[in-house]
Nucleic acid binder design. Structure first.
Length: 216
DNA sequence: GCGACAG
DNA sequence: ATCTTGTCGC
């Protein structure tokens, strides 16, 4: 039994086709004006339950709100198909507060994905909202040339799909999800890196999982 | 055929 | 991601 053979080839192929079909709706251009607030979303797990948190931050790096949502999960983790596991809680929560942030940071990749449709792109297409994928590990593509002291390109063939950013000994793989340009996904990430929305969401998702919610 | 593989 | 002891480093 191999680790990721939970579904037959036919099912996997249909999911792949679905991703490819939806990926055509991605816009890699900036569909936003002035950024006033951004949000980060992440999920912690306990048994078969997902504990999601959405943290909203303003440009002064102040936390404006922390929201949570709990749902059951039914789909396993399969590399390349993370969205089918985490989409429901993320979309439900992000949609509820959709007018309270300008850009959404999602834990996982955007277009740096085998079918250019990682979870950040999937969420962005469903919400019709600018999203940025922020991952701690590389899934697809290779590390290309250094463009700054601590920043490298993520490339596939001749295409740049995103960036590897080194911050405080930690690596972040950044790629556009939807409705944002390659260039802006990097600059926006850097703008909030001192109060990384994904890391904050991670902390609060875990607190929520453990029954603590001193939330704003 | 073999290895790699977001969370 | 989660489970989980001791251990290394600031």
């Amino acid at each position: 039994m191999h680790k990721y053979s939970k579904f037959d080839k036919e099912t996997i192929n249909k999911l792949k086709e679905f991703q490819i079909k939806l990926s055509k709706k991605i816009l890699l251009e900036d569909c936003f004006d002035k950024i006033n607030t951004v949000a980060g979303v992440d999920i912690a797990y306990k048994n078969n339950k997902a504990f999601a948190s959405l943290v909203i931050i303003d440009t002064n790096l102040r936390i404006k709100a922390i929201h949570t949502l709990e749902t059951k999960v039914y789909f396993p983790y399969i590399p390349g198909f993370l969205a089918f596991r985490e989409l429901k809680p993320i979309v439900l929560l992000a949609k509820r507060f959709i007018n309270e942030y300008d850009i959404l940071f999602v834990n996982g990749h955007g277009i740096a994905h085998p079918r250019r449709f990682g979870i950040a792109s999937h969420v962005g297409v469903l919400l019709k909202k600018p999203t940025i994928g922020v991952a701690k590990n590389l899934l697809f593509g290779n590390i290309g040339k250094k463009i700054y002291e601590n920043i490298f390109e993520i490339i596939y063939g001749n295409n740049v799909l995103g960036y590897l950013v080194n911050v405080n000994k930690k690596k972040f793989y950044i790629s556009p999800g939807n409705r944002i340009s390659l260039k802006s996904c990097l600059s926006v990430f850097l703008k909030f890196v001192k109060k990384n929305p994904i890391e904050l969401a991670h902390v609060y998702a875990n607190m929520f999982k453990n029954g603590i919610k001193p939330f704003i």
